[in-house]
């Protein structure tokens, strides 16, 4: 309303160029936007120049980033990483964990939100949703503790297994158990939370469409497929692009906490390697930065591919 009035005023005065007029009209909003822009610039863009560390010979905190102590070494750190014995195992582990996690984890919240939306009782759906959201608030360390309690040698799962006549399994020491435990626990934590965005989208679906579909003879399931699912499809493709963009961006914390000698072969990821190289032991921060930068580049490339593909096949895209 403010703008309408203001613009009317300004048009009547017809002062300044069109661009200037628009600037004036929007000035309160631009001023309000300003702090956000400053913060994003300061904390998200400015620190990017830190990637220069990846081209130092050996950076330590306190060194000038623009004037390296050991001199510039070009892509040497990247070359070292490609030649690292760990390079292919790291790539494979990170990729598999992320891909499997994505394949399992991406459809889950969609299915859950559709199911919740189709639940007859509103109240039941609300209660279920709250229950599903709960695990999201469990901290990582607590989650790992829970995994230990459930899947440890004397844990709940093994107790049940033994009472049913099975052998106890050392899930934490088995390579084959790492990915399932990691992925399922992550999804258990977040499927309800991720479903929120879809549930919100679903709440905008016109109930009339459901009624029309009922009269058209659609079953409950058919209504989900033909009414609900199309309604959240734009959101789905948006989330898909963003997930693919973050596909290789798995954090180190959880894998690091779950790491044991037994599963190290699959649990060592790019991010945990960066952590160990860059922070934990006698560090080589330039090397760690190079690996991290390489990982980010993969992510950006994936994001661009995903976005371009999505743009081509549907009208949904990030930019």
């Amino acid at each position: 309303m403010t703008t309408a009035k203001a613009s009317a005023e300004l048009v009547s005065r017809s002062r300044g160029s069109k661009a200037f007029r628009r600037l004036r009209e929007n000035s309160p909003f631009l001023v309000m936007l300003f702090p956000a822009v400053v913060i994003v610039f300061l904390f998200n863009y400015l620190p990017i120049y830190g990637v220069l560390i990846a081209f130092h010979k050996d950076f330590v905190p306190g060194d000038s980033i623009l004037n390296p102590v050991g001199g510039w070494v070009g892509l040497q750190n990247f070359k070292n990483f490609f030649e690292d014995v760990q390079f292919w195992p790291l790539m494979r582990n990170t990729f598999l964990l992320c891909i499997i996690g994505f394949v399992v984890g991406f459809p889950l919240p969609i299915i859950v939100s559709l199911m919740l939306n189709a639940t007859r009782g509103r109240r039941t759906a609300k209660i279920l949703q709250t229950i599903f959201n709960g695990p999201h608030f469990i901290s990582l360390v607590v989650l790992i503790g829970m995994l230990n309690i459930f899947f440890g040698h004397y844990g709940l799962v093994n107790n049940i297994k033994e009472s049913l006549g099975g052998e106890r399994t050392q899930y934490f020491l088995q390579e084959s158990a790492f990915r399932p435990m990691y992925i399922l626990s992550s999804n258990w934590q977040d499927f309800g939370w991720s479903a929120i965005i879809y549930i919100a989208a679903l709440s905008n679906v016109d109930p009339g469409q459901h009624e029309a579909a009922i009269l058209d003879g659609a079953s409950r399931f058919q209504r989900v497929i033909h009414v609900d699912l199309p309604a959240i499809m734009p959101m789905v493709s948006l989330m898909l692009i963003m997930s693919i963009g973050g596909l290789m961006g798995v954090g180190y914390e959880k894998a690091f906490l779950m790491q044991t000698d037994g599963n190290l072969g699959v649990s060592e990821l790019i991010s945990t390697y960066v952590y160990r190289k860059g922070i934990l032991n006698d560090t080589n921060q330039s090397y760690a930065t190079a690996i991290g930068l390489f990982n980010s580049i993969i992510n950006v490339v994936l994001l661009i591919i995903a976005n371009t593909t999505s743009k081509k096949f549907s009208n949904n895209s990030l930019w």
């Binding site: 044991t260 000698d261 072969g265």
Partner: peptide, 21 residues
Amino acid sequence: LSNYETALGDYIRVNMIKWLT
């Protein structure tokens, strides 16, 4: 050492637990 020792330690650890368990 920083180039080799991590990988060496990991290699020994991974094998040893495989053998022992």
